[in-house]
Amino acid sequence: QEPLTASMLAAAPPQEQKQMLGERLYPLIHSLHPSMAGKITGMLLEIDNSELLLMLESPESLHSKIEEAVAVLQVHQISEASHKSN
């Protein structure tokens, strides 16, 4: 698969741009967190496209963002669970 470039993205309509980025991010996220991959990808797609492109080029920054998303999700799930039990 050829690398995604800023000019390729710019040529696509905005909604498709997120889909294109998601298609690149999803397999990487799925290899780390299979059960939460769709959710994590959705969270990361709210970040600016330019920043997402940088992450695709830098596995280290992508990984730290993925771990951040996992942490946010876990806190969210715990707070949801405690709301239900109260």
């Binding site: 769709g38 998303a69 942490a71 946010v72």
Partner: peptide, 23 residues
């Protein structure tokens, strides 16, 4: 620092072609 990530974000649905290996 507080995370800017939103836990209520819409889930991403990958295209079927990507997932076909798992189905």
């Amino acid at each position: 620092k507080k995370s800017t990530l939103n836990p209520n974000a819409k889930e991403f649905n990958p295209s079927k072609t990507l997932l076909s290996v798992n189905k």
